[in-house]
Design a protein around this nucleic acid. Structure first.
Lengths: 217, 217, 217, 217
DNA sequence: TATGAATGAGTCTTCATTCAT
DNA sequence: GATGAATGAAGACTCATTCAT
């Protein structure tokens, strides 16, 4: 019975894996999946290319792990918000804006995680195993929250939570990508209101939530 | 304004440039920016790789031009809708959904147009020359339409058209990217409503427009 | 109507191809197919590896051409003998020994030509296109000669030429390979008769022919 | 002669060596010398690559030993036949065909045993120590049998057993190699006799023996 | 004007081997 | 006695780009 699930050797191994992943992430976040080459990665961490293959059986494996870890990050953050007991309206807004903020914190990382070629599934909920994937679980949080909104009458009663979640996710995704790709986004002309990124995110989230709200006739 | 903007020689030159760009677009739209190699492009049009360099100083220049041309396409389509005399509500929805449909028709092309590393600016309206760029003009169409909505009371009176245009654009962008990257998007679980891509686009657009609508107290 | 089937440009191209092939053959003959690397080949002829790919689309193509050319050589030589009007007995023996002599002249080349991995067909006459391949045509010469021997009563009347040709080929192949792989073959102990390679080839051929001969009871 | 030829430690060592060799043979026989990599070998036996170097100073040494062991196998089999009291004609044929059958049972193994680059000596009988080597002893069996044939008048009286043995060996070798390298060998065209491998081996052996037979008058 | 030839740098990956532990 | 870690060299192959012709 292994009390500690990691032997000292294994711990060391994981530490190195982490070091590689961390270095990879830096390149990855700056230049995307195609910009990340084993060679350059090896140089960065003063390893031989061959050494990296001791820890990752292929470039794809490494990249996949990078992506998975990213969605884990999103999931954690979104969960933390969703599980709060804050009033629904705020909670919903927080939840959405958190998604964007996490994405924006590692913009290229986020972008690349979606530009996946090997089984790069987005929030598509009828794929096998989707519910278990990090991405899938994040999606379910979102859908659950919308369902709650419908239930308590905050959102339109004819709103299909699954559909709405997908639409909202797309809107969030759009803003995240915009910010990821356009350094100065969302700049506004002088003479018009200038709005900082943070505030704009809130504005955008507000628009999205308004799109779902019920209105007493 | 140069009266004779094109000498016969220059005209010929532009014709060939166009031919190259057209061929490039085919590959580009199918396989994205990374899939486009000068060599393979040259083969496609029965030219030598070297010949292409007579017309484009580098691959980047060619790709940039491709991106720019794409926004021209979007602009044209959006304009065509926006200039109609259709009732506002429909016109607005048409305008937004057209954007997505054009994007979705050439997914890689669209995605790549935003994934610009060289000078890929998004809809950032305080950049010099933005109003003249294709992208800028497309943005202005969108903003104009929202302003119109505010004016006629269809949209909330406190809505800043510039801000709202940017938010709406982001939402459209998000859906376009989702569809571009995820072949099966938006798939829905059986047992729940299954919705085809076309219908989902309409749904999404509807959500976005609702987010801007005014509601009598 | 092209009088000369090769333009000057094409001629130049073929010259270089030949140069590459020749250099490749040297390495190939010394170290076999696995020992031949594009890199080293490129170094040998002061070319860049990439340049070689302008003339051969892959290493396999290059190697295949090398092999094919070798069987062409065998074919030519065997043909030259077979078409003579020398008496049958001598002609048959000459024909077989020529095969061995050509093989032995480029021992590793010969060995490698058989060690083919990509469709390395030996004298297997029911494969599609076998009759047209160099190897196939060489085989047919051999079979024809044996058929002639059967017809004129020199060989056993119950001998199937196809079968016998295959058997004889195998015997020739065996000696060729022995000589190819064992530098000192066939050395004989002092005190016993010492026999030089040339004479041994004749002896071996004689044994093979005797195996087919008819004997009046 | 060392009485205690193996200390307990040494015995253990040899046991492990044997285990490694055995595992190596499996891979070797399937994929040939080039397909055998120390790494994969180590994986197969759950050893580290480094551990193997404790028992074999290099890959070459391991491979050489593998080859030698193969000839031991041939020797054993050939001996078993040669020592029988079967009538000479059958015994001779059995002996030869056994050689081929053993070779064909492990085609890569057989081929590689001859493709030696390091010290791969063939049946060359004037080399020092040849008579003691496995290969040498196998050769001697063959020569002995031919001598017997000459003596009892089955074979031509002017046949030099040493010479004939070498020739016969070459013929056997040829067929073995053909079968080793060409999966479909010996296929025969339909419309002609189709002959299975087993039967063809017998036919070939028959040819070889006939080449040596004496003919009255 | 257009091109065939050539290249240098780069891609991922595998190998036999060594060494400190 | 065994190993995990690491490496340098090499493998095939592709790319954007230049230059003499």
């Amino acid at each position: 019975m292994t009390v500690a699930t990691s032997s000292p050797a294994e711990r060391r191994r994981n530490k190195i894996r982490a070091r590689i992943l961390s270095a990879a992430e830096t390149v990855f976040a700056r230049e995307g999946a195609e910009g990340l080459s084993i060679r350059r990665l090896a140089e960065n961490i003063d390893y031989s290319p061959a050494a990296i293959y001791k820890y990752f059986s292929s470039k794809d494996e490494l990249v996949d792990e990078l992506k998975e870890s990213f969605f884990e990050l999103i999931l954690e953050n979104v969960h933390r918000i969703a599980d709060t007991s804050t009033p629904f309206a705020d909670r919903a807004r927080d939840c959405l804006s958190t998604y964007i903020r996490v994405a924006v914190a590692k913009p290229h990382h986020y972008a690349a995680a979606f530009a996946g070629e090997s089984g790069g599934t987005g929030p598509v909920d009828n794929e096998p195993g989707f519910d278990q994937s990090k991405k899938g679980r994040a999606f379910n949080v979102l859908r659950g929250m919308i369902a709650e909104g419908v239930e308590i009458g905050a959102f339109r009663s004819d709103l299909d939570p699954s559909l709405a979640a997908k639409s909202a996710w797309a809107s969030m995704h759009g803003l995240a990508m915009m910010i990821a790709h356009i350094p100065t986004y969302p700049a506004l002309k002088d003479g018009q209101k200038t709005m900082a990124r943070e505030a704009f995110i809130d504005f955008h989230v507000d628009q999205v939530v308004r799109g779902m709200e019920a209105h007493d006739e």
